[in-house]
């Protein structure tokens, strides 16, 4: 079985977000980058398939050279080969089209993307890849098992989950639940050494024009001061929520 995991290279969750170039671009200065958390759950699940079912695991990223540290980390965790499409994507459709091209030329049985990346929160790449490759898609996938070519998966729905039976090839938008937090792996020394020898293929992109263009970023206004209510006067909170905030 051949698995491809899509990896987004995103700012660490504690990052202070700033913008540059006249507020038209995210400022990468001083930012620590990590594997997008939703992708990391998917990557770990892929490595379980490798260990239990003998799958091969490739990872792919659309980005410039700075994303290679993140790709090396996925190789150290256990991916076999990394592919980087050498392009600074301007929108999600360009990412999806670049990845779909690679998939159309290199057949995969299972493609795992994150349901959303925590930087731009587009949440559309896996669905777009599915439409571009004509491969069936399950979003918000929280469990996937494979037996005799049959896929049993679960997806999160509002207020519960849906259990699905389907086949391969398949693309999923993954998240926590595919594996749990404490299943995530920290690269060890041996993994890091091995990662250096693994293939990191850099491909030049097909030119796609973007459908969206960001021209300005802005940060929210600082929040006004909190109104404190004494724990002896809880009725005041109820009153404020009703009369001032009109929330109850």
């Amino acid at each position: 079985m051949k698995i491809l995991v899509c990896i987004s290279h995103v700012p660490d969750t504690t990052s202070k977000i700033n913008f540059t170039n006249n507020n038209s671009e995210f400022d990468k200065n001083g930012i620590q980058f990590i594997i997008n958390p939703n992708d990391e759950f998917g990557l770990t699940r892929a490595i379980w398939f490798k260990e239990k079912n003998g799958a091969s695991v490739d990872v792919i990223n659309v980005g410039l050279q700075d994303t290679e540290t993140t790709l090396r980390k996925t190789l150290a965790i256990g991916a076999d080969k990394a592919i980087r499409i050498n392009l600074e994507p301007k929108d999600s459709s360009v990412v999806a089209k670049s990845i779909a091209d690679y998939i159309n030329e290199n057949n995969y049985d299972l493609i795992i993307a994150g349901r959303e990346s925590i930087d731009y929160n587009g949440g559309m790449v896996p669905g777009m890849i599915s439409a571009l490759t004509n491969i069936n898609f399950i979003d918000k996938c929280i469990n996937i098992e494979l037996k005799d070519g049959v896929v049993n998966a679960s997806r999160e729905i509002d207020g519960g989950k849906e259990n699905i039976s389907t086949g391969l090839p398949l693309i999923i938008g993954g998240q926590k639940g595919l594996v749990e937090e404490n299943d995530l792996r920290i690269p060890n020394m041996r993994g890091i050494m091995m990662a250096r020898k693994k293939e990191l293929l850099v491909l030049e992109p097909t030119e796609y024009s973007n459908t969206l263009e960001t021209y300005n970023f802005e940060k929210p206004e600082p929040k006004g001061k909190v109104t404190l209510i004494s724990s002896d006067e809880i009725e005041k909170l109820v009153d404020l929520l009703h009369n001032e905030a009109k929330a109850i």
């Binding site: 700012p11 977000i17 913008f19 995210f26 925590i118 930087d119 731009y120 929160n121 969206l212 263009e213 960001t214 021209y215 300005n216 970023f217 802005e218 940060k219 929210p220």
Partner: peptide, 10 residues
């Protein structure tokens, strides 16, 4: 965008 840490004009 950036999980409610910013607004983006697109």
């Amino acid at each position: 965008t950036f999980t409610n840490k910013a607004y983006e004009k697109v």
